[in-house]
Simulated assay, not measured.
Amino acid sequence: MRRRANRSSAEQNADIDMTPMLDIVFIMLIFFIVTTSFVKESGIDVNRPSAKTGETKAQGNIIVGIKANGEIWIDKRQVDIRAVRANVSRLHAENPLGSVIIAADRETKTYVLVAVMDQIRLAGIMNASIATESESQ
């Protein structure tokens, strides 16, 4: 009879306590959420024009960067003007609530900016914004 009692107590002690492992998993999850950047940058630095009427967008955005020499950058990659529509469509499908922001250098030619805006509209997004710097009053 004693052997039975010893076996049943050994079986009760054989259970694995999952609480510490779950704590570690949740801490790692919180760490990765906090350190992840949710804004996709265009991958280039531009000298944006200033505006007194600029507004701040709070949601995650799709940023299309245009350098002064006419290079177009999306998601840290240089793209051709013909690929803007496909890239913006893909990124918009991944983040349907995000808006499209065009970060054009102040020296960018107008025809390049208009061509990019046309490609964005052909992708089905009618409310693209142009990034500016706030002007001090």
Rank of each mutant, 00 (worst) to 15 (best):
R121H: 10
S37R: 14
S42G: 12
I130W: 04
R106M: 15
D80S: 07
V25H: 03
T110F: 12
I130Q: 12
A51I: 03
E71Y: 09
L97R: 13
S129E: 13
I74W: 01
I81P: 01
K109N: 12
G43H: 04
I66T: 06
V84F: 00
T110A: 15
T19L: 13
L91Y: 02
G60S: 10
D75C: 05
M28Y: 13
M28H: 11
V34G: 05
T56K: 13
V116K: 00
A5S: 12
I63Y: 04
V64M: 08
R7Q: 06
M28F: 14
N69V: 00
S136L: 05
T108Y: 03
V34A: 10
V34N: 08
D80Q: 10
Q12L: 11
Q119I: 01
L22K: 14
E11Q: 11
I72M: 03
F32V: 14
K57G: 08
M1P: 07
F38H: 09
V114L: 15
A5W: 06
N69Q: 05
F31T: 02
L22R: 11
S50H: 03
A128P: 03
R4L: 14
T53H: 06
I101P: 10
I66L: 10
V25S: 09
A58K: 08
T35I: 11
G124Q: 05
A5R: 10
R7S: 09
G43T: 05
N47D: 13
D118F: 13
M117H: 07
R48I: 01
R85N: 05
I27P: 00
Q119V: 03
I74D: 01
I30N: 05
K40R: 11
E71T: 07
G98P: 05
V39N: 11
V84P: 00
G70D: 03
